[in-house]
């Protein structure tokens, strides 16, 4: 093959790979533009604060779904973050033994379990014995989804803390547990906060595990053992309905959801960046 031909092949392959970038960007741009353009029309103060109204009545909103989503995710974080972060610290501190390897492998495998399957599990654990759907069941399902990612993320962050720092602390006569908590985990904390915020953002976007755990609710929910509305389930129900009004509501709700998720993700990244800069 001549050199010119080889050069041409090389350029052509580069162009093809660049095309892949365009192909990946296309759906992203289209999706974001549509959610913004179709969703913005329905946004109003009422939309964010009112209960949904039946088809045919104008006005109304998804206030209960927003509050529902936030409270289910808050409850899930309350369970998931301590366990996930704790498991991560365990893996970083004693993850090289046989038990550690087993737990790490299990966490990796768990992070691939489909979220709908976790929904069935929470159904079996909570809905069946309690005889009704509840926010609690949904929160437990979401926390199960958070734990493995948090554990692996925390482990990597804690492992990044230099061993010399740990030694410096131990050499000062500071006990193991204080060294681990106040020196090692403390040093990794900004990263852990970022990981936790991203996990919360992911949980906020989950639908499948809520379908038959938290179910839905046309009204405000006041207790964690009641069926509770969520933005994602609301979007799903509205989208597959035959009514244009509900479709419009789905787009607006999707915009609200994307803004919440985006806020959390941007917050997480900003936090990470600020902390990194503060330490220079």
């Amino acid at each position: 093959m001549s050199l010119a031909r080889r050069r041409f092949t090389s350029r052509a392959m580069t162009a093809l790979c660049g095309l892949a970038l365009l192909l990946a960007l296309l759906p992203l741009v289209s999706l974001l533009m549509l959610v913004i353009s179709r969703g913005a029309a329905g946004l109003s103060f009422d939309f964010l604060t009112q209960l949904p109204r039946p088809v045919g009545e104008s006005g109304g909103g998804v206030g209960n779904a927003i509050v529902g989503s936030l409270s289910i995710v808050a409850l899930a974080s309350l369970i998931g973050i301590p366990v996930g972060v704790g498991a991560g610290v365990y893996l970083a501190e004693n993850g090289d033994g046989r038990a550690g390897k087993l737990i790490r492998f299990t966490a990796e495998v768990l992070s691939g379990v489909p979220s709908i399957v976790v929904g069935i599990v929470a159904y079996g654990l909570f809905v069946v014995p309690m005889h009704h759907f509840s926010a609690l069941a949904g929160a437990v399902a979401l926390s199960v989804l958070m734990i493995p990612t948090l554990a692996r993320g925390t482990e990597e962050l804690v492992r990044l803390v230099p061993r010399t720092l740990r030694e410096a602390s131990l050499a000062l006569g500071i006990p193991e547990w204080k060294t681990a908590l106040r020196v090692v985990v403390r040093t990794a904390l900004p990263g852990i906060v970022t990981t936790a915020l991203l996990a919360i953002a992911r949980a906020l976007g989950e639908t499948a595990p809520l379908l038959f755990t938290a179910l839905n609710n046309q009204y405000w929910s006041h207790r964690p053992d009641e069926p509770t509305a969520s933005l994602t389930v609301q979007i799903f129900n509205d989208a597959v309905s035959p009514y244009d009004e509900l479709h419009a509501r789905a787009w607006s709700a999707a915009l609200v959801l994307l803004m919440l998720v985006g806020l959390l993700s941007i917050g997480a990244r900003l936090f990470a960046r600020l902390r990194a800069r503060g330490q220079r």
Partner: peptide, 27 residues
């Protein structure tokens, strides 16, 4: 305190195995 700390960590690590077990059992 050191023992409590390592017991706590083992409990958190073990929670991962418990979750896996519960998933299989409940399904």
């Amino acid at each position: 305190a050191d023992r409590l700390w390592s017991a706590l960590l083992i409990a958190f690590g073990g929670a991962i195995l418990v979750v896996a077990g519960v998933i299989v059992f409940s399904l």
